[in-house]
């Protein structure tokens, strides 16, 4: 009989085999995020003549399980920019807290700016790029791809992306994850170049984004029919967080092998 308190409640080696302490160790190297766990799927966005439209669905998946169906993945920054998050949700929440702190500091810096501060979307994008690149250099990446929408220093519509390695780029339309294969070709039909995007009206841009969200729901198994959509204009950000996909038609599925009810 073992009377040592350390042994209380422990499985006996002679019955269960040696206990694997490696699962219960807090010495040794610190564990960084090595894989995303709870994830958000595509974010899509397109520029139009006086702003940017962005959308993402409200689902946070746990692998293939639709775990949290009411997670908002678009975030307003200083009433003037929108950030869309795809990838790991806990890393998104970390960034969200960090950005809240930053925006409070910014708003205090200049109270006369009507809570808009001085950081425009281009500045915010640069900040996040440096932030994510630093984390990749430390081998402790934030497992996200972000889209940042708003206006640049010349008050022109601005849309850019940053990913977990700090790779950043801009384009008239952008999409993360599955969206880069499914939504981007549709959006490029309407805004192949900056000039094309500068001709789009707000109604057209919203229509294209809604169409893309529908296509994504048809084909992306980790997506949802409830989504958030944001329109950034010079006046500010209009964010709707509980939209429902309209006018779905699953008739196409009937003709596709492995999609519908056919057995052969």
């Amino acid at each position: 009989m073992d009377h040592r308190p350390q042994a209380w409640g422990r499985p006996r080696d002679d019955v269960y085999g040696a206990y694997d302490h490696s699962y219960f160790q807090n010495t040794g190297p610190r564990q960084a995020t090595q894989a995303p766990i709870v994830t958000g799927t595509s974010v899509i966005a397109i520029k139009y003549k006086d702003g940017v439209v962005m959308a993402a669905d409200n689902l946070a998946s746990y692998g293939s399980l639709a775990r949290f169906p009411d997670v908002k993945r678009l975030r307003v920054f200083l009433d003037s920019s929108v950030i869309g998050f795809s990838g790991d949700v806990s890393d998104m929440q970390f960034l969200d807290r960090h950005l809240t702190e930053l925006s409070i500091d910014e708003a205090y810096e200049d109270p006369s700016s009507d809570n808009k501060g001085h950081l425009n979307a281009a500045n915010l994008h640069k900040y996040l790029q440096k932030f994510l690149y630093k984390r990749r250099n430390d081998f402790d990446p934030l497992w996200n791809q972000l889209l940042i929408a708003g206006f640049d220093g010349d008050a022109k519509p601005y849309l850019a992306s940053v990913d977990l390695r700090g790779t950043s780029f801009t384009s008239p339309s952008l999409a993360t994850g599955f969206g880069s294969a499914l939504a981007q070709p549709i959006m490029r039909r309407y805004a192949a170049t900056e000039e094309d995007a500068a001709k789009l009206t707000r109604e057209q841009a919203v229509e294209v984004v809604k169409e893309c969200m529908k296509v994504l729901y048809y084909r992306d198994a980790r997506s949802l029919d409830r989504y958030s959509i944001a329109v950034v204009t010079k006046e500010g950000v209009e964010l709707k967080e509980d939209e429902q996909l309209e006018k779905q038609s699953w008739a196409f599925a009937e003709r596709i092998k492995g999609y519908g009810t056919q057995t052969v």
Partner: peptide
């Protein structure tokens, strides 16, 4: 003396479950 081995393991287990970034 004891029914379990208290010695902490130093090395990662065989077939380490690591996905490197």
């Amino acid at each position: 003396n004891y029914s379990f081995n208290d010695a902490p393991r130093t090395a990662a287990p065989e077939g380490a479950r690591q996905h490197r970034f």
